[in-house]
Design a protein around this nucleic acid. Sequence first.
DNA 1: GTGCTGACTAGTGCTTTGACAAGTCAGCAC
DNA 2: GTGCTGACTTGTCAAAGCACTAGTCAGCAC
Lengths: 152, 152
Amino acid sequence: MILAGRLGRRGNRPAGDNCPIDRAMQVVGTRSAMLLMREAYYGTTRFDEFAARTGITEAVAAKRLRDLVESGLLAREPYQEPGQRTRHEYVLTESGRDLMPAVFALGEWGRKHLPQKGSPWMTHDGCAAPVSVVLLCAEGHPVESDSLVITS
Amino acid sequence: MILAGRLGRRGNRPAGDNCPIDRAMQVVGTRSAMLLMREAYYGTTRFDEFAARTGITEAVAAKRLRDLVESGLLAREPYQEPGQRTRHEYVLTESGRDLMPAVFALGEWGRKHLPQKGSPWMTHDGCAAPVSVVLLCAEGHPVESDSLVITS
DNA sequence: GTGCTGACTAGTGCTTTGACAAGTCAGCAC
DNA sequence: GTGCTGACTTGTCAAAGCACTAGTCAGCAC
């Protein structure tokens, strides 16, 4: 890894709010938030299904879903099934979808380094090849850590 | 996203310990752990530099580094500079290196969706193209969420 | 010996997370 | 009206995260 710009000569100053990893962790850095996002990717939209499938309590689910809506990862939208009253569902926004690589990268790491039988795995529909989360440059080259430049 | 196998017919049962995202969050799901891993990728190895550059207190840094060593992401190794007594440094293990996509995916999301000027960005050494974290199958195809199969 | 420095440990206190239990509230079915 | 159900809210409690301050400890320099 190559540190360029101010990062290369930062000495021992703390990165503070300049670090987007830090800012991201302050928004989605809880177990419950990650599990709720996982469920959203799996297609869950209803409150009680979020709570039941993640195994977190309804109290925590309510608070965390509110946080995620407020932070713009989910949107709370009204819907109505015939013969039912109007309810709200939680749907992914673009911001929420953009977090998918981070969530599944964590999952891939957990699957490999904290193994437990029965863990789900990812494949590509059609070619059936296993899927992983990698660093890729805009020219399509896979990027190893020794050719990765971080500039600030 | 397509859920196959048991995941497709799970109903409302909680995933529990079968979910590797959950297991991963229990190990590295704190702000301090992520910031320490970031520093490790940036090349930091010494205790006081970890503490100073992340901006977390020495007490928290000591505890979290111990946790990360115990979980196998870092290794604590003795070293000796000439004329100095032996000390210990914290170096990345393979497990720690494997977490890199997850950490930088979080960073990429934070940079895009929680913008703040001065945030560092990633490029590819040589071709200078911007780098992002993506899902890729073993055949080299980029995987969109609608062609991603998750099997359990 | 004394001092210094890097690397911690210990104690206090506040805040957040999360589990558990119980209560509320809206509106359709009857 | 009463009941039911989905979607919460409220309250209590324990554990964990983190900041801050202060103290310790090892070993080289002198």
